[in-house]
């Protein structure tokens, strides 16, 4: 919601090229290109093949989580519990399959069972969130906030705050090989895109996000749609956890703790509305690309993690400002 403190001003002349860029769906992609072009000369290695692969490796899991967030935001909710879901599923998966004390230590089934357990747990967490939001009529912000506190606490308690390492290679290969991680992320994105743009579920999702009461009167199974969105978010967070855990080769109870800003930031930078109804996979992809690129470049520049934190915070503010500016200029 844009606060127009001074009332609407007369239509301003916006140069047509800028206006076209601002209006475009690809605005964030243009910004990515600008960022890359602007930083590449000063940033050693930004344009190298190695870094390119590294960039994609960073992008894949973040994209997967952000896809789930996109679905939940479209339906008019928010899921703050995704990072804790990543941590908890990581820990649980590792406890199932690690080669020392794991439940299935040494079994050839360890890795597949662990992955299924992780996804199942993610889906279950999502279902819990969805049920609390729909059947108990609790605000999504508070539900997923308490879920975040609880699940993260649970992951830490479960492991007494220790990492669980020594995972089977059959598992770690999933996250550490871009050749595997990328197709997983890409197919998730493709599937979510198909659901959103072409399926009954996608239309229902948007309708509920725009106006749940209208949707209910029109015969849309509102509760089921909302629950499905949260389940999808939990599942995708768990899938991202598989990638992250594999990449790290260890189950960590604080895995993903730092990426909540990235997840929500990337989704919103892409253009998905926090008020529901509006959002697309392509937008989220651009948002994720933008943040990943920024993170990567700042790292290559040798900046400390707190500087990166400040810059990212600033960039998110700038993106939000840009979004308001475009709404004001173009809609006034």
């Amino acid at each position: 919601m844009a606060t127009m403190t001074s009332g609407a001003t007369g239509p301003r002349r916006v140069p047509s090229l800028i206006a076209a860029a601002l209006r475009s769906e690809y605005l964030v992609l243009f910004l990515c290109a600008l960022l890359f072009a602007g930083l590449a000369p000063f940033t050693p290695g930004l344009a190298s093949t190695d870094n390119f692969l590294n960039l994609l490796g960073n992008l894949a899991p973040l994209l997967v989580v952000a896809l789930g967030q996109t679905l939940v935001l479209i339906v008019g909710g928010i899921d703050l519990s995704v990072t804790s879901t990543i941590a908890l599923t990581s820990v649980v998966g590792a406890l199932v399959m690690n080669r020392d004390t794991g439940w299935l230590a040494g079994s050839p089934l360890a890795a597949p069972v662990a992955v299924v357990a992780m996804l199942g747990l993610g889906g279950l967490i999502g279902a819990g969130n969805g049920l609390a939001v729909t059947k108990l009529h609790m605000p999504p912000f508070m539900v997923t906030l308490t879920a975040m506190m609880f699940l993260s606490g649970f992951a830490i308690w479960l492991t007494q705050s220790k990492n669980v390492g020594n995972l089977p290679a059959a598992f770690t290969v999933l996250g550490s090989r871009p050749a595997l991680a990328l197709p997983i992320a890409a197919s998730s994105a493709g599937l979510v895109h198909l659901l959103l743009e072409r399926s009954l579920f996608g239309r229902w999702l948007r309708a509920v996000g725009f106006n749940a009461r209208t949707a209910h009167v029109s015969g849309v199974p509102v509760d089921a749609v909302i629950i499905a969105a949260y389940i999808a978010s939990g599942l995708l967070a768990a899938a991202a956890s598989v990638l992250y855990t594999g990449r790290l080769e260890t189950g960590s109870p604080v895995l993903g703790q730092r990426i909540l800003l990235d997840v929500i930031g990337a989704t919103v930078i892409g253009g998905t509305s926090l008020f529901g109804g509006k959002g697309r996979v392509l937008w989220t992809l651009f948002g994720v690309l933008f943040l990943t690129l920024l993170d990567n470049a700042l790292n290559l520049l040798g900046l400390s993690h707190f500087t990166i934190m400040m810059v990212k915070g600033g960039v998110i503010l700038l993106a939000a400002l840009l979004d308001t500016a475009r709404t004001r200029w173009l809609a006034a």
Binding site: M4, V268, L274, T307, I316, L317, A320, T324
Partner: peptide
């Protein structure tokens, strides 16, 4: 006119950094 949620999330990170 930035959403409060986003604006203060931004300042959260800037402040912490």
């Amino acid at each position: 006119g930035v959403l409060a949620f986003i604006a203060t999330l931004g300042t959260l990170y800037i402040g912490r950094g």
